[in-house]
C-alpha cells in the first residue's frame, strides 16, 4: 500500500486512499455539519414554540401583518431552485458540463430573486413600524414585538445562509465552467447541493410558521 500501483486521481487528496473514500467523507461531513445547522436554527424554533405558547393571540395578529403572498412566492422560488440544484448535481455526475453551468446559474438567479423579494418585505416592515426597538408601534399587543424579533432573527439568519450559499455556488460554477467536475469527481457540487437543499427546508418550515398563522379568522 505504500507504493500506489494505480495512478492517483489529481483531485484525490493525499490522506485518502481513493476517490470513494474522499467522496464519502465529504458527503458525511456535510451531513454532520447540517446537524449542527439544525441545532443552530433549533434554538430559534425553541424560542418560537415557547412564545407562541405564551402569546397565541398576538402570534396570529402579528402573522397577519406579514405578506403571505410574497412568502408564498419565495417558497415557490426556493423549491424551483432546489430542483435546478438537484439537476445540476445530476449533470455533474453525468459529466455534462454545459447543463451543470446552466442549472447552477439558474439556481443562483433564483436565490437572488429570493433575496430581492426579502429585501422588499423588510423594507415594508420598516415603513409600518414593525421593527422591534424604540420605533416599534406601541399600540400593538404584548408579544407582537417578540414575534417580530423572532421573525427578523429567523429570516435574517436564513437570508445570511442564502448569501453564503450564493458565495459557495459562485466558486462551484467557476470550477464547473472550467470542467473540473465529472463522473469521477463531483463531491463539491454534491456538498454544495446538500447545503442549498437544507436552506430550502428551513424555509419550508418558516413559511407556514411565520406567514400563514393569520390567514384564517382574519
Amino acid at each position: 500500500m505504500s507504493t500506489p500501483t494505480t495512478t492517483r486521481h489529481p483531485k484525490l487528496q493525499e490522506h485518502f486512499y481513493n476517490m470513494d473514500q474522499q467522496l464519502e467523507a465529504s458527503t458525511l461531513g456535510m451531513w454532520v455539519f447540517l446537524v449542527t445547522e439544525v441545532m443552530f436554527f433549533g434554538g430559534l424554533f425553541m424560542a418560537y414554540i415557547v412564545y407562541r405558547h405564551m402569546y397565541p393571540h398576538a402570534w396570529v395578529e402579528a402573522s397577519h401583518e406579514l405578506n403571505w403572498q410574497l412568502g408564498g412566492l419565495n417558497t415557490m422560488v426556493l423549491i424551483v431552485s432546489s430542483l435546478t440544484m438537484a439537476l445540476a448535481v445530476r449533470a455533474a455526475m453525468l459529466s455534462e458540463k454545459k447543463q451543470q453551468v446552466f442549472y447552477l446559474l439558474t439556481t443562483m438567479a433564483l436565490g437572488t430573486v429570493f433575496l430581492v423579494v426579502k429585501f422588499f418585505e423588510y423594507k415594508a416592515k420598516f415603513e409600518h413600524h414593525l421593527v422591534p426597538g424604540p420605533h416599534f408601534n406601541p399600540a400593538l399587543e404584548q408579544g407582537m414585538q417578540i414575534f417580530f424579533s423572532l421573525y427578523f432573527m429567523m429570516t435574517g439568519i436564513h437570508a445570511a445562509h442564502m448569501v453564503i450559499g450564493l458565495g459557495i455556488m459562485t466558486y462551484i460554477v467557476i470550477n464547473a465552467a472550467k470542467g473540473t467536475y465529472n463522473a469521477e469527481y463531483y463531491g463539491p457540487v454534491e456538498v454544495a447541493g446538500l447545503y442549498w437543499h437544507f436552506v430550502d427546508i428551513v424555509w419550508i418550515f418558516l413559511f407556514p410558521l411565520l406567514y400563514l398563522l393569520g390567514r384564517h379568522g382574519a
Binding site: 464519502e24 458527503t27 458525511l28 451531513w31 454532520v32 447540517l34 446537524v35 445547522e37 439544525v38 441545532m39 433549533g42 434554538g43 424554533f45 425553541m46 414554540i49 432546489s82 430542483l83 440544484m85 438537484a86 454534491e190 447541493g193 446538500l194 437543499h197 437544507f198 430550502d200 427546508i201 419550508i204
Partner: peptide, 30 residues
Amino acid sequence: VVLFFMGVRWNTPLTKTVAISGFVWLLILF
C-alpha cells in the same frame, strides 16, 4: 427534499442516522 433531492434514499445507513439524529436532538430540546 431530504429523501430525493438530497439523496438520502440511496445513501448509507450511517447518513440516514445522521440525517435523523439532528431532528431527534431538536425534539429533546423542545
